[in-house]
Amino acid sequence: MGFIQDDASLVEQALLQDEDRKQYTGDGSVDFKGRPVLKHNTGNWKACSFILGSECCERLAGYGIGINLVTYLTHKLHEGNVSAARTVSTWTGTYFITPLIGAVLADAYWGRYWTIAGFSIIYFIGMCTLTLFASIPGLNPVECSGSICPPATPTQYVVFFLGLYMIALGTGGIKACASSFGADQFDDTDSQERIKKGSFFNWFFFFINIGALVSITVIVWIQENAGWGLGFGIPTLFMGLAIGSFFLGTPLYRFQKPGGSPITRICQVVVASVRKRDLVVPEDSSLLYETLILEGTRKLEHTEELR
């Protein structure tokens, strides 16, 4: 009888431990203090609502500055069309290449949360600089007198480009991390949450387009009809709201720890591939020796496409 009771106790204990494990995420995510997170307290849509709201406001701010920039350069800084187009093209290229910096910093050192937070503040300072530049008469060139349009002074250009390129740098941490940080809020080991994650990306791009739509219609009209100070000030206000929304959700977020430099891991894969090029791989992928969770990464499913 004693053996039967011991076996029953062990089974009961195992069931309780299994039930307890199900209450926590299985993808290695932690809370703000680095502790394992309970599923019902964190992540999912209650955390993503802050991320989606933040992304909508950030996109409105970004497009509100960039979409009408050629007009501002030609009308206010008195640049020619060719020079203005070149300036905007250079800035746009920088705007889209800085996410490489944000991605490396997030994956290797800071994590996605702190990368978004730090770069958002840089972004906001750049927005404030441009708004002040457009609002304070002394920072802008003198208005045209007939066909004579005085060019901007070197000091005016320095202030303008400082704000503009701070925005380009700031977007690097947001573009690289916002969507993946939203994906972190869903546990890949939970089939129901995996389905929700697919819906998240649909909503993510929907909110991006909402922000862009408001910018290319309402914000552009305000800039051309109510003044550039107000036209830049409203996107700056929305960027402030984006930062506030992002920080408000902090207690609800799930965090993935940085997993080291991706460049190092790429080199490791290349070296391992060369060294093991003659190794016979079992047909059953379950026989491969590998870990289920790597810190700061998600395990990719096996595919037959690149054999």
Rank of each mutant, 00 (worst) to 15 (best):
I101N: 10
V142Y: 11
L162W: 11
F124Y: 06
P150C: 01
A103R: 08
F160K: 08
P99E: 10
T115C: 05
V214I: 14
S89K: 08
F119R: 00
T155W: 09
G173Y: 00
G170I: 02
V159R: 05
S199T: 12
Q223Y: 07
V104C: 10
F186T: 02
L213N: 10
R86W: 13
E193Q: 13
S199M: 13
S191C: 10
S179C: 15
Y123S: 02
A168G: 08
A117K: 06
G182C: 04
I195K: 15
G80F: 14
G163F: 05
G163S: 06
F201E: 15
Y165K: 05
F161N: 07
T189L: 15
F207M: 12
V214H: 06
W110A: 11
G163E: 04
G198H: 06
P137C: 02
G211K: 00
T92K: 13
G111T: 01
V158M: 15
G173K: 00
Y165Q: 06
I167E: 03
D187F: 07
T217L: 11
W221A: 10
I116E: 04
D184H: 03
T153N: 08
T115D: 05
T217W: 11
P151S: 02
A152Y: 08
T171I: 15
T98V: 02
I167G: 01
V220R: 05
I219W: 05
I148E: 09
S135Q: 07
A106G: 13
F201M: 15
Q223C: 02
L130R: 03
S83D: 13
V218W: 15
A84S: 13
F200Q: 04
S147P: 00
I216M: 11
S180F: 06
A168W: 08
C144V: 01
T171Y: 14
A108V: 06
Y109C: 06
F96S: 05
L162G: 00
L213T: 14
W221I: 09
F207H: 05
D107L: 03
G182H: 04
W114Y: 14
Q185C: 05
A178V: 10
F204D: 10
L130S: 01
K197G: 11
T98Y: 08
A176H: 09
V142R: 10
S199Q: 13
Q192G: 12
C177N: 15
T131H: 03
I136H: 04
T129L: 09
I216L: 11
T92R: 13
W221E: 10
T115F: 00
P99I: 03
G146M: 02
F201I: 15
S179K: 15
S199P: 06
Q185H: 02
D184K: 01
L105V: 08
R194H: 13
P154A: 03
F204T: 04
G182K: 01
P137M: 05
C128P: 02
D187I: 04
I122M: 00
G118W: 01
F204Q: 07
